[in-house]
Amino acid sequence: MPRESSVVQRFLPFISLAALFVILSIASPYFLTATNISSVIRQTVVINIMALGMTLVIVSGGIDLSVGSILAFSGVVGTMTMVSTDSVMLGILAGIVSGALWGCANGLMIARMRIPPFIVTLGTLGIVRGLTLVISGGLPVVGLPKEHGFLGEGTVGPAPFVLVVLIACVILAHFVLHSTKLGRYTYAIGSNEAAAVYAGIPVGRFKVAIYAICGLLTGLAGMIETSRLMTGQPTAGVTYELQVIAAVVIGGGSLAGGEGTVIGTLIGAFIMGLLSNGSDLLGINPYWQQVIIGAIIILAVALDVARKRRFAS
């Protein structure tokens, strides 16, 4: 009964998240407080928004290792624009656009020069980080307008403003991946690129769009990061790419392409966020937190592989 099992499979990340939530509520009296919950949201939102873009990339059968560097680049370019123009909006826009342009560059190299995405983005990981340090002189961008703090730390009624941003991004990403032509082709390319080419789809053009969207969301995440820190850090986002990829994979994305959902990724990111928050609350040594998160990644994929093997024949 393959279909029954895939229902369980589909909900497995959600069940895990719910279980984690219940366990933490019981284990720590501080967990289920408004302060703690909004702090979890604020802490995970950056990874979460980046992971939405990464979901598209991974579903298409690709990978983007450069998102951590792009996050820093966008943050620095955005804050520098902000400082020189004294306009928050212009700064945020500059950050988002610069992220999208780097995504575009990744996509063009992958599609036109036919270099594997792992190699292209490993290269841009270094290039973009280096350029970020060059333009900032290695120093954080400071003196940001006070209003910029609203993006990352502001509230709307009882809710953090970033939650509104996150929900909007999730709805939009879900819509793109599930209801548009781009989303359909993303699954087709990841599932069988040759068949997509043979169906007459201009696969290269769509790959560029996919990486550009990933860059764009990373640019937005970069601006949120600068708003939370109130500086533009050229060293921000180091190793974020790994957390982002982990969120997608825990949420059911397959690095072989063709599989993954926006909702799954959202859950994957929250699982990681809760693990780290819960470990803090329960006083677990942060060194051990890394061990736990690493083990969860392997466990999540192991379950997925076991399921596929069982239903292969």
């Binding site: 699954y187 599932s191 069988n192 040759a194 068949a195 043979y198 063709g258 599989e259």
Partner: peptide
């Protein structure tokens, strides 16, 4: 299998 269909879809 290889070029005609995306069999997982």
């Amino acid at each position: 299998q290889r070029t005609g269909l995306a069999v997982d879809l």
